[in-house]
Design a protein around this nucleic acid. Structure first.
Length: 480
DNA sequence: ATGTCC
């Protein structure tokens, strides 16, 4: 495929690359990243998304883009509320998958290094993980309805977590437009028992150390400093979100003939914004997003308990407070400036993190002057990053940036290359304490199966999307 | 990502 280079970090997929494109594709990345990905089907998916009705400005891809279901992972697309569509494939199966970061007053070298094995074992006891496992806070009936409506406010009302946690969450931890009645019985029964569980795949809970600060002012605002111990949680809406996506893709697929929308790929099933099918999906998606946020909140409580157990002090006394909690799989109605005019658009981010720059009214007050924290989970055994949104992201990507390293190898390929048990030995030899649930699945997440997260982060800065604040390296890994 | 096929 021919991509046009617009500047060192911006590439265009021209209209005409696939039939029916209404706008171009825009790919952000260094030359090395784009060349390495060019054989991937991801750029064809970026082009296919550009055929959807009502798409505004362009179909975007972040530097960590790779092939996904329908839409590429790392894709961003905004749609006009009157002429556009919503597509479950533009959000992904793991609705509101995202990252929560806790900081602490503990220093790695002085307080934690000597006890990291004990800490990993304690976390292993407190954090349910793996496919299909039940969670720390099983809920049913009216309680599940409250989770779907109230997000993190539900566990907070039950005394789980610390007052003020919700201030440091995207949307203050709760999406107001949830429609629990659009969540099927099957989705409910899958989710009810899984609240407060990590899941599998690339989901993890890690103890990390700040090993480099690149922006002292932003790091200070986020409460981060070198040698400090943090906890990063990467998880989502578990079986509930998966079932919501499955149900609504099927519903839209059935409706497709009557909606008069022709899509080049069945996985791009969508419905016009304002149509009942679209509104029901968005309501169910927000309900699943509230479940995902409550899930990360309950997992954070498990992490706090493990630290309390090992260090014999309360989470509050250990300074285990939230830096931020943000999703990277979500569609939201937002106000953006397009061609010099403020307008509302439905922004789909699939494997892309919202990145609102300094001064945005939706940011927590302590971060408003600095910009939104962007939490980027690396692959297993490699660094993770805290970035800050750049003001230019608003125009370049509807306020979005990368969400991780991005896969460079399929799960099957990755499994063939190394056995899980050997990989576990390698990680332990590098001084990383490990609490895996399933050695068989471990090598699907091996570092060699992913792009270099440091390079992805550099490309995001080059493209004007986000700027690095701090690099975190893992010292204990809890995996599904 | 996912009770990796109701």
């Amino acid at each position: 495929m021919d991509l046009e280079r617009l500047d060192p970090f911006t590439w265009r997929v021209p209209v005409g690359t696939v039939e029916g494109m209404r706008v171009p594709g825009i790919v952000y990345g260094s030359e090395a990243i784009v060349r390495a990905a060019v054989d991937d089907r991801a750029f064809l998916q970026v082009a296919a998304v550009a055929t959807l009705p009502g798409i505004v400005r362009a179909s975007y891809a972040m530097p960590d883009v790779h092939w996904g279901y329908g839409f590429a992972i790392g894709g961003v697309a905004a749609f006009d509320p009157d002429e556009g569509v919503v597509s479950p494939g533009g959000v992904g199966f793991d609705i509101a998958c995202g990252v929560r970061l806790l900081r602490s007053d503990l220093a790695w070298s002085k307080d934690v290094a000597a006890r990291v094995g004990e800490l990993a074992r304690s976390l292993g006891r407190e954090i349910p993980r793996g496919t299909g496992t039940g969670g720390r806070l099983p809920v049913a009936g009216r309680d599940l309805d409250r989770v779907l409506r109230e997000g993190v406010r539900y566990p907070l009302a039950r005394g789980i977590g610390l007052e003020g946690d919700e201030e440091r969450c995207e949307d203050r931890g709760v999406a107001p437009d949830a429609l629990p009645e659009a969540v099927s019985e099957r989705a409910r029964s899958r989710g009810a028992r899984q609240l407060g569980s990590l899941g599998s795949g690339n989901h993890f809970l890690e103890v990390q150390v700040v090993d480099r600060v690149l922006d002292a002012r932003a790091a200070a605002a986020f409460g981060l400093a070198e040698d400090q111990v943090c906890v990063m949680i990467h998880s989502g809406s578990r079986g509930l979100g998966h079932q919501v996506c499955t149900d609504h893709v099927a519903a839209m697929d059935r409706l497709a003939p009557s909606l008069g929308i022709r899509v080049p790929d069945r996985q791009l099933a969508c419905a016009p914004l304002g149509h009942e099918a679209a509104e029901r999906y968005l309501g169910a998606m927000h309900a699943a997003a509230n479940f995902a946020r409550a899930n990360r909140h309950v997992l954070a409580d498990g992490a706090r308990r493990a630290f309390e157990e090992v260090f014999r002090r309360s989470a509050q006394a250990l300074g285990l407070t939230l830096v931020y909690d943000v999703s990277h799989n979500l569609a939201k109605l937002e106000e953006h400036e397009v061609d010099g005019r403020r307008r509302r658009v439905c922004v789909h981010r699939k494997g892309a993190t919202r990145a609102f720059g300094p001064g945005h009214p939706d940011l927590p007050e302590p971060y408003r002057a600095i910009g939104q924290p962007v939490l980027v989970p690396g692959s297993m055994g490699t660094a993770s990053w805290v970035l800050v949104a750049l003001p230019t992201a608003a125009d370049r990507s509807f306020g979005s940036t990368c969400h991780g390293a991005g896969r460079a190898m399929s799960r099957t390929q990755a499994k063939r290359r190394q056995r899980g048990a050997d990989l576990a030995r390698d990680l332990e030899a590098r001084g990383i304490a490990l609490a895996p649930a399933n050695l068989g699945l471990l090598s699907e997440e091996a570092p060699y199966a992913y792009k270099d997260v440091d390079e992805v982060v550099r490309a995001c800065e080059g493209a004007g999307l986000s700027r690095p604040v701090a690099r975190l390296r893992p010292v204990a890994v809890v995996k599904g």
